[in-house]
Design a protein around this nucleic acid. Structure first.
Lengths: 209, 209
DNA sequence: TAGATTGTTAATCGATTAACAATC
DNA sequence: TAGATTGTTAATCGATTAACAATC
């Protein structure tokens, strides 16, 4: 893996390619060209080849890529050759929905537990997943080697939750709270801001008229 | 609004600034500098000023920006000086959670109805919001002047849903299904891919060791 | 006037696209 | 060999950053 400085956009696309390749695998397609990958994901073939070139040579000139092989390379690049344990903080509507989200399971993300501070919610089960008191998160994360935490709490709690889970040893945070959060340098964070996405739509709709 | 070609990244940031400014308003802060906005959203002050400069001059040299005024300008730029009617297709866990999501309501997005093809779900209510049969979506969208549709169905249904809602007159789609969708040119689409976000985290975690 | 902060320009940086030699 | 498609380089395009004159 000759990682020099990989654009984040490349990583996003690799993840999309991977899902598309998985689909092809299921349909028993064995070989595909960069042109056809591009078609499948609404991209350009030059970009597909460039994205892959950051990591090696996975194709065969004149032929294309072996679907299964290429996907397995990409999965490895993304760190998905192993399962990842996840906890979710916030057992509200969003947190509960995420705990059941099939798209996580399919890609090897296992939600082991949810955490909340509401006595009403603690002890309940959402599907297979139990809601624990937030006070137990540190122990839980340590015992279960959890590296990823999803934050689905109201915005004004989010920074406090970060402090707790970072202390517990979490290395990556997926944040759904609409607020900028500070994390130590060794912790990865990504914000999924649902309203922002809506607002890009309204902006563009307003432009086009 | 001197829109020439605005980077999408700028729109995303405007949306984030806006939410931060709202917070300041609530705390009765009346004036703020680009440096302090940047601090509040983990950005740079040059970028804040550049982003705003695409749309006009909203500040006062030597002083800064009036919080309330600036936010009102940004809201207008984003098309948020009015409410938007929304329907959600897919009344599963994710769709249901989104229908209750406070972050949408706060920004003027009103979810008027949910649609599904599962007889089990049709007729149920999630909070205030009723689940209707998908067959009624066209009529519903027309009667209620719905412009935005959220797609929260399994990936293999998504393209079919697009056809239906575009036909019904929807102008913008927020897609949670992990699949590339084709839409006519006059329809805006944005994909929120939850697994992709997780995978950027795992990629980065693997890089850092 | 002195200090602060904007709006804007120019320089830098980075990502995408196009083109093509290599090669199956 | 002819046709196809990769991997890679160079050219283009676009976004970010730095710097500073304008001005409150």
């Amino acid at each position: 893996m000759k990682s020099h400085k990989i654009p984040e956009a490349t990583i996003i696309r690799l993840s999309v390619y991977s899902r598309y390749l998985k689909q092809l695998e299921i349909n028993n397609i064995t070989t595909i060209s960069s042109v056809d990958i591009a078609r499948g994901v609404n991209g350009s073939s030059a970009q597909v080849r460039k994205d892959l070139a950051y990591f090696g040579e996975f194709g065969m000139r004149g032929v294309g890529y072996n679907v299964k092989e290429l996907n397995s390379h990409i999965m490895k690049i993304l760190g998905l050759n192993t399962n990842w344990n996840v906890v979710i903080v916030g057992a509200g509507n969003l947190g509960s929905a995420l705990s059941q989200y099939k798209g996580f399971q399919e890609r090897g993300f296992r939600v082991l537990g949810m955490f909340d501070n509401d006595p009403e919610k603690i002890g309940r089960r959402i599907g297979e997943i139990e809601v624990y008191p937030i006070s137990q998160i540190k122990e839980f994360v340590e015992i279960n080697t959890v590296r990823i935490c999803v934050i689905a709490v109201p915005a004004h709690y989010a920074q406090e939750v970060v402090a707790g889970v970072v202390d517990a040893g979490v290395k990556a945070i997926l944040n759904f709270a609409p607020r900028a959060l500070s994390v130590p340098e060794h912790v990865e964070i990504r914000n999924v801001d649902l309203a922002v996405n809506m607002e890009i739509l309204t902006f563009n709709m307003c432009l086009n008229k």
